[in-house]
């Protein structure tokens, strides 16, 4: 059987906020290592990869690998019934056709029990090649969210450019253009700071669909910082860490010259 108890149930609520608008349903793969889910948006432009390692849970048992085929709209509706400080337990049999969700209030005076029916989902899994990224940028997640929102007013494309000590976001459209630059801060240990790491100090500039970047920022509440990894002619990686034991990552194909 499979049983996973998450003291900080809000993590699951926040993670699903970052998933549900991009992927309608997905296979949540449960193994002794934890829970993982990957899926592409219907246009196959963005890949979402969620990893929740077993250490994230205060109780975790998975005797045999279990696949939970979940409709994310339904999953989200049920998770909205949980309070932010509820403890959430997921349970399933070995070859399940349903998954049990148990919500316990922090002071244990209320328990809610839900059953979600599982669906068979036939989806392809993508192999992500090991890539040496030309640039790795860490910025406050709220700042990234704001920049994506602000630049979306100018057009459907956001250009991300990294040069030594600086990351620049720009957009151009019929109403005008915008350019927002963030400089690297001195002390990079602080979550409020910006860090820019480059391989060989070669500037890197790529264009992305602003619509998808805005979908990714729905995960902002998962982490104070977001990491962007860029490489010429490669998908952008946008990562939100879930403490030390999980992550929600997005891969977005760049717009390229025809």
């Amino acid at each position: 059987m499979f049983e996973a108890r998450l003291l900080q149930g809000s993590i699951l609520k926040k993670a699903l906020e970052g998933i549900r608008e991009l992927i309608t349903s997905g296979n949540w793969e449960c193994s002794s290592a934890g829970i993982s889910m990957q899926g592409m948006d219907p246009s196959h432009v963005a890949l979402t990869v969620l990893m929740l390692q077993n250490d994230l849970f205060d109780q975790f048992r998975c005797d045999r690998n279990v696949t939970l085929g979940l409709n994310h709209a339904t999953f989200s509706k049920i998770l909205k019934c949980a309070a932010n400080d509820d403890i959430i337990t997921l349970k399933a049999e070995d070859q399940p056709d349903e998954c049990n969700l148990l919500f316990q209030s922090a002071n244990d005076d209320k328990t809610s029990d839900f059953i979600i029916k599982l669906t068979d989902i036939d989806q392809e899994t993508l192999g992500i090649p090991d890539t040496e990224y030309a640039a790795t940028v860490k910025v406050p997640s709220v700042e990234f969210q704001r920049i994506c929102r602000d630049l979306s007013q100018f057009g459907d494309t956001i250009i991300i450019s990294v040069k030594k000590g600086c990351v620049e976001f720009s957009g151009t459209g019929e109403i005008g253009s915008a350019k927002i630059a963030l400089k690297e801060s001195g002390n990079v240990d602080d979550d409020e700071k910006v860090s820019v790491e480059m391989d060989k100090d070669t500037p890197c500039s790529l264009s992305f669909a602003s619509r998808y970047l805005n979908y990714f920022t729905k995960a902002t509440s998962l982490s104070d910082t977001v990491t962007l990894q860029l490489c010429p002619e490669h998908p952008l990686v946008v990562s939100y860490d879930i403490g030390d034991n999980g992550s929600l990552k997005y891969y977005l194909a760049p717009k390229i010259e025809e």
Binding site: E124, P235, A253, E257
Partner: peptide, 14 residues
């Protein structure tokens, strides 16, 4: 003019 390719251009299917 820039176009939007799908991820299959960059990633392989397992």
């Amino acid at each position: 003019k820039k176009v939007q390719p799908t991820l299959s251009r960059f990633f392989t299917t397992k």
